[in-house]
């Protein structure tokens, strides 16, 4: 199984409370908070699809959609990215 390729970040702006956890802990600085304090993917091309933003989002507001649209395999996420 090859590396997952990013299709898009779906960010639910209604649910996002702008805590900034996803922004701070993204290993590739893909995300930022916009002027309304909502998370947005500003450099999606850098995304390595580790999904840590999705998993750490307290608001369940982020989904990292990959292609081919296989069922998400959490085992692909590297434990090393969290010490």
């Amino acid at each position: 199984m090859g590396k997952p390729k990013l299709k898009e970040h779906i960010i639910n702006r209604e649910w996002c409370k702008g805590c900034g956890i996803c922004v701070h802990f993204c290993p590739k600085n893909v995300l930022e908070l916009d002027e309304n304090d909502k998370a947005v993917a500003v450099i999606p091309e850098e995304c390595i699809c580790c999904r840590l933003c999705e998993l750490r989002c307290p608001d369940l507001a982020i989904e990292v959609i990959t292609e081919p649209s296989e069922v998400s395999e959490s085992s692909e996420v590297s434990e090393t990215s969290e010490v």
Partner: peptide, 28 residues
């Protein structure tokens, strides 16, 4: 999302509250 009652979101916890992360992890 199939495991949550979406109509009650966004939830009532504060911004950045760790309880939301627990909910997230538990559902997974």
């Amino acid at each position: 999302k199939d495991y949550i009652r979406e109509r009650f979101f966004p939830h009532m916890w504060c911004a950045g509250c760790g309880h939301g992360i627990v909910l997230n992890g538990l559902l997974r």
